[in-house]
Computed example of a mutant assay.
Amino acid sequence: MDTEAEIAEIAILGGVGFNSHRDCENIPIKTPFGRITAYLTSIKGRNIAIIPRHVEEIHIPPHRVNYRANIWAVHSLGVKRVISTNSVGSMRGHPVGSFVVLDDFIDFTCSRFSTFYDDKTVHVDVSEPYCPEIRAALRYSLEKKGIAYTEGVYACTEGPRFETRAEIRMMSQFADVVGMTGVPEVVLAKELSLCYASLATVTNQACGMTTQKLTAEEVTEVVGKAQDSIFEILSDAIGKIPETRNCMCRFAKEGACL
Rank of each mutant, 00 (worst) to 15 (best):
D2T: 09
E4Y: 14
E4K: 15
I10D: 00
I12A: 03
L13V: 12
G15N: 07
V16T: 11
F18C: 07
N19G: 09
I27M: 11
P28H: 06
P28M: 04
K30G: 00
I36G: 02
I36P: 02
S42P: 00
I43F: 04
N47I: 02
H54P: 09
H54K: 01
H54Y: 06
H54A: 01
E57F: 11
I60H: 04
P61N: 08
H63W: 06
H63S: 11
V65M: 08
A69H: 06
V74C: 05
H75P: 00
H75L: 01
K80Y: 01
R81N: 10
N86Y: 05
S87N: 13
V88P: 10
V88Q: 09
M91L: 13
G93W: 15
V96Q: 07
C110P: 02
C110M: 14
C110T: 14
D118N: 15
D118W: 13
K120I: 12
K120M: 12
T121D: 14
V124Q: 12
V124F: 10
P129M: 13
C131V: 09
I134N: 05
R135M: 06
A136P: 08
A137H: 09
A137P: 02
L138G: 05
Y140Q: 06
G146W: 11
G146C: 03
E151S: 12
E158M: 06
E158C: 01
P160K: 00
R165S: 01
E167S: 01
R169C: 01
S172V: 02
A175N: 05
V178F: 05
P184L: 00
A189D: 04
A189P: 00
S193G: 04
C195Y: 10
C195I: 12
Y196I: 01
S198T: 10
A200L: 05
V202W: 15
C207R: 08
G208R: 13
T210R: 12
Q212F: 08
L214G: 00
A216W: 11
Q227I: 05
S229G: 08
E232L: 11
C247Q: 08
F251S: 03
A256C: 08
A256S: 14
C257D: 01
C257H: 08
C257E: 13
L258P: 05
